[in-house]
Structure formats: C-alpha cells, structure tokens
C-alpha cells in the first residue's frame, strides 16, 4: 500500500517536472516567438551583407579597372589559407542558409497568422485605410501600422524573386545581354542599358528600403534590444539604413542611364 502511494507520488512528481524541454534550437523553432528570433538573426546577416555589397558596388564610379579589380580581389580573400574563391563560396553558403531560414520561417508564420484571423471586420479600422481616415471622428486614435509594416510579406516575395533574377543576370550571366565572364563592369552596364533591367532593379531596391525600414526595427524588438528610451535611436538607424541602401544601390542604374558610367 505504502509502495503504491510512493509510486503515485513519484509519477506526479515526474509529471510536473519541467526539465524535459526540447533543445535550445527546438524551443526556438517550435514557437512563434523563437521563429521570429531565427528571422531576426537571418535578416541581420543579410543586412550586414547588403551594406558591404552596396559599398562594393560604388566602386563602379572609379572606372572599369577598379571595379573589375575589386571583383577579382573578392575571389582571392583569405589566400593562401583559403583556396581561390573559397571565401566567396563560404559567404554564398551562409547567405543561402540565411535566405532559406528567413523565407521558411516567414512562410510558416504567415500561414499561421492568416489562419488566426480568418474573418475581416465589416468596416476596416480607419488607420489602416488612409482614405477613410479623413472622415474618422476627431477623437480617433491614430498611428497604425505604417506602409512599410503592411508590405513586409509582399515586399519579401518581390525581393525573393529579384534575388533569383539578379543571380541569373550578374552571377551566372544566364540572362545578361553582354554575358562576359570576368568583366562585371561591362555586364552591369549592359543590364542597366535595358529598360527592363532598370525597372526590375529600381522597384526591387525600393521594396528593399521598405523591408529594411520595418525589418531592422522589428528585429531589434524580436531580439529584445528595444526599449522606450532606445526607440528613437533604433528608428533613426532603421531609416538611415533603408535610405542609404536604397540610394546607394539605385545610384548605379541611374549613373548608367545618365551616362555617368558607360
């Protein structure tokens, strides 16, 4: 009898034990909060890459020799410790991992979000529909989700498609009109000499600016770095990053269009 009570007691104790949780990675990927952490980290990896990429692109303003030389140098980073192009391939693997993590998490979370709110309100909230806002009563609360916030999903899809086109255009040269391996300067000029090349690129870079604007600030909140005191600094950084990246990237097609780079 006593043994029986003891067993029941032990079982109850085991039932309430809390040390049987999944691993750190399992806890993160298995919850909405943790999955956002994965998105934030992968987003920041891509953001850091984009800053370097944008600064590298600006070398096009120093002429074909400098730009092509820079492109060749990228393949020699880490030599002789790393073999030729190894650094580039390591960077590519990291970036693909970041893109895949970011996209898979976004897809899974978005499906969940849409399922969690299946019925729309008969009258949309005034903040989200600026046309209606003008007629809202004066006491109406304002400040709602910004344009950048509401376009995160579509913006992400646009950027994903752009990356595919961008790689086919300037890495594999599959769709490049000039397609001369080892001559990136001429290839870039060829792409931006077509109207569709300019349109695709500029639209994608505007989408990038919006995505980074909400994404950077959002990542800071997801990683727990935000606070009321730090909010202004984080928002300013997000705006500055978005503006600099968009302006920096777009300056290249604009320079080709205006004949500054040819």
């Amino acid at each position: 009898m006593e043994g029986c009570v003891l067993t029941v007691g032990l079982m109850a104790a085991l039932d309430t034990r809390t040390d049987r949780r999944p691993s750190f990675a399992g806890l993160l990927w298995g919850s909405t909060v943790g999955k956002k952490t994965a998105m934030a980290v992968s987003g920041i990896v891509m953001l850091l890459y984009l800053v370097v990429h944008m600064l590298g692109n600006l070398k096009i303003f120093f002429g074909a020799g400098t730009f092509d030389g820079y492109a060749a140098w990228l393949r020699t980073i880490g030599e002789p410790f790393l073999h030729h192009e190894w650094f580039l391939w390591i960077a590519r693997v990291v970036l693909v991992a970041a893109v895949v993590t970011h996209a898979v998490a976004a897809y899974q979370l978005s499906r969940r979000d849409i399922a969690a709110r299946p019925v729309k309100y008969a009258r949309p909230s005034p903040g989200r529909h600026p046309r209606w806002r003008r007629f809202a009563p004066p006491l109406s609360r304002r400040r709602r989700a910004s344009y950048a916030t509401r376009t995160m999903r579509w913006g992400g899809i646009i950027l994903g498609l752009f990356i595919v086109w961008h790689i086919l255009d300037l890495t594999t040269l599959t769709v490049n009109p000039h397609a001369a391996p080892g001559h990136p300067y001429a290839n870039v000029v060829a792409t931006f000499s077509t109207w569709y090349g300019d349109v695709i690129y500029i639209v994608a870079m505007l989408a990038l600016g919006l995505h980074v604007r909400h994404g950077f600030w959002s990542a800071a909140q997801t990683l727990g770095a935000g606070s009321a005191a730090r909010d202004r600094a984080l928002k300013t950084t997000a705006h500055a990053l978005a503006l600099l990246l968009t302006a920096g990237f777009i300056s290249v097609p604009v320079a080709v269009m205006t004949g500054l780079v040819s």
Binding site: T32, K35, D113, R144, T149, W217, S218, T222
Partner: peptide, 9 residues
C-alpha cells in the same frame, strides 16, 4: 493565436 509582426495595433 497568430505570431507578432510588430504592427503596433
């Protein structure tokens, strides 16, 4: 419940 996209609503 859905996840947070920090819309602030």
């Amino acid at each position: 419940f859905g996840g947070c996209t920090l819309t602030g609503e």
